[in-house]
Each structure stands twice: as C-alpha cells, then as structure tokens.
Simulated scan of single mutants.
Amino acid sequence: MSDSPASQGNGFEPFPWPPVEPTFSAWKAATFGIGAALAGALLLARDLAEGERVHALLTGLLFSCFSLIGFGLIPQRRPRGAFRYINATVMTRAERPTADSWVHLAPTRPARLPLLIAGAEATLALSALVVYIVLVLLGLAPLLNEDTGEGGYLLALVPVALLAVASGWVTALMIGRRIRGGSFGTRPSGVALGETSVTVRVPGRDIEIPWTQIKSVTARRTAVGTDLPGSVLLPRRHRGENLDLIRLALLPGGEVTSREQWLAADGYSVPRDAVYTALRWYHSHPEARWELGRVEGERRIEGWRRRALAAARPTEA
C-alpha cells in the first residue's frame, strides 16, 4: 500500500444520510435547564417555608434532574477523534484469547456528566419512594396525602419500582461507558476491527464477529421506537425523530447465533463516516484485511478519518 497523501482515504464511503439533527438546539436545552432550576428553587423555598421537608426533598430531586437533563441535552460538537490502535487483550478480562492481537478501536463517547448525575438522582429518588411506599403499606410511615389512601400507594408501588430498576440499569450503563471511555487501567468500549473479526465491546454487549460470518454491511435510518427487523428505513420529515444504524447481516453457523447485529452509527469519538467506511471497505476487500492490526491499516483508516473531517467542515460552518 502506498503511503502517499494521494492514496490516503481511497475507498471513502460516507454514511448515506447526513447526521440526524438534535431534537433540542443549544439554546432550547439551556433554557429548559435554567427554567427547571429556577422553578425548582422557588418550589423548594416554598416547601421549606411551610415546613414540608419531605416535599422539599422530592421537589429538589425532581427539578434538579430536569435541570441536569436540560444541560445534558445541549448538542455536542461533531466527533473528530482518531481510531485507537491497541492490543485487543486490554478490551477483555483476559479470560480467554482474543481472535486478533491488535485492533483498531472506534471508542464510544463517554456518557455526559449531567445526564449521569440526573440518572443517579432519579434512581435514588425512585428507590427512596419505593421504600417509603412499602413502609406506608406496613403501617410504619404516615401518609403524605390522606385522600390517596393505601390503595393508591399499592397501585403506585409496581410502576415506581419498575421505573427505579430501569433508571438504575440505564445509569449503570452510563457509568460503565464513562469509566470505559479511555481512562487508564480500564477496559475501553467501542467497535474494533481486527484481521479476522469485528469486535463489539460495550457495557451490556461483548462479542466477536468473524469477518467470514458477515454477509453484508448496510446503513439504515429508522424511527425511534420502530422494530428494527421490519422497519421502513427512509428519512422522515422531522430528522430529529430518526435513528441512524449500521446493520451487519450475519450468516448462520458462527458463535453469534442471531442473523443480524445492529450498531449505532453515532456515539463514537471518531467520525461516523470513518466507522462506516472501514466496516464496508474491509468487508468487501478480504484480501486487504491482513493490514488490520498493523500500521498499514492504521494509515488507511486515518486517511478515511481525515476525509470524513474534510467532508464535514462545509456543513459545520
């Protein structure tokens, strides 16, 4: 492979659609966060003045969560980072040999701190509410609202408990993703390309997919909440409602028993066009996979990253 600048970025294939625009603009998200903080402060002061300490605690937790979510939804800058050229073993717990020794990792972006704190607060508040409801039903705590009665608390117990579990699970994934977002001594998360396999190592998913099992690599755009296997993947009028994905169609007979693997097109610290190009190009060029895990592959992938950044500049202006 030639190392000349003219050869870098050959085979570049951007994702078919431009990045989905965020639902909230920066000023809308910031306005929501500031408004929630001010409203929470006013209600908190009122509850404290009336001696309603429990209400004040719940009000503070609720509106601080809303405020943090608002600030956490402020759009981030488009990713510009590079693939990490690392030993595949550092991505595992060293319980068994990896398919490839050295890989090129597209790291996931760490979860944003305001959203992580909001998730932790929500989990804490919901868990405390579950404990309080149980104590009320056991007669060990007074009713905050006599009009509700024990029947209302009993009906609220299951949905509140489910929300607490869901919030805790999402928060745990965000914490794991942030811890594994490149800190020294932790297992990095992301999608890695090696000579023999594509590795997906993120909180909640840990698999190696042989290149020979991948039938095709295609782009998909679907609506949030749509069942992926049967979705009609066309751009919708409101782009903020779309979700961009990379679909790996799989052949039967490998360790991965499902017939497809969905990867997020976004959420990496590297440009998504570079991730998509690397998966597509190396899938269709098996004779060139020898360079993955070597400096030749690093140079080629870096060329695609630079092409992706150059293509994105006019739209960011």
Rank of each mutant, 00 (worst) to 15 (best):
G303K: 07
R300N: 00
A265S: 12
G225T: 10
L263I: 07
R313S: 15
R247K: 14
L292I: 05
A219M: 05
A311E: 08
S269N: 07
R294G: 08
R239E: 01
R300E: 00
A311V: 02
R272D: 07
A249V: 15
A308W: 03
L250A: 07
R237M: 02
A278G: 08
A274K: 03
P271L: 01
P229S: 09
H283W: 05
E260G: 11
P271K: 07
N242D: 15
G240Y: 06
L234K: 08
A223S: 03
H285K: 04
V224N: 08
P229M: 06
A278R: 07
D227F: 12
R220Y: 13
R236I: 12
P252L: 09
L243H: 07
R220W: 01
A274C: 03
A288Q: 06
T226E: 08
G240T: 10
V256S: 13
L279R: 04
E260L: 10
E287R: 01
L248G: 09
L250D: 09
R280Q: 08
L279S: 04
R247I: 09
R259C: 05
G253T: 09
A288R: 05
A311M: 14
A312L: 02
R299T: 08
W290Y: 12
W304C: 06
G254F: 14
W262C: 04
E291W: 00
Y268H: 10
V256N: 12
Y276T: 01
T277H: 02
R300Y: 02
R305S: 02
A265K: 05
R307S: 03
R289E: 01
V232E: 15
S284C: 13
A249F: 01
T257L: 11
V232F: 15
K215R: 12
S258K: 14
H283R: 12
Y276D: 01
V295N: 05
A223T: 10
Y282M: 03
W281E: 07
A308Q: 12
D244S: 14
R289D: 04
R307A: 09
R299L: 10
N242Q: 14
R220V: 11
T226G: 07
R237Y: 10
T222Y: 05
V232P: 12
L292D: 03
L248E: 04
V270W: 02
L233N: 15
A264H: 11
V275W: 00
L245C: 05
Q261P: 02
D227G: 05
V256L: 15
W262G: 06
D273L: 11
V295P: 01
A223F: 13
W290L: 00
A265T: 07
I246F: 02
E241K: 11
V256A: 14
P235G: 11
A274Y: 00
H238K: 09
G297S: 13
V275F: 01
P229R: 14
D273H: 11
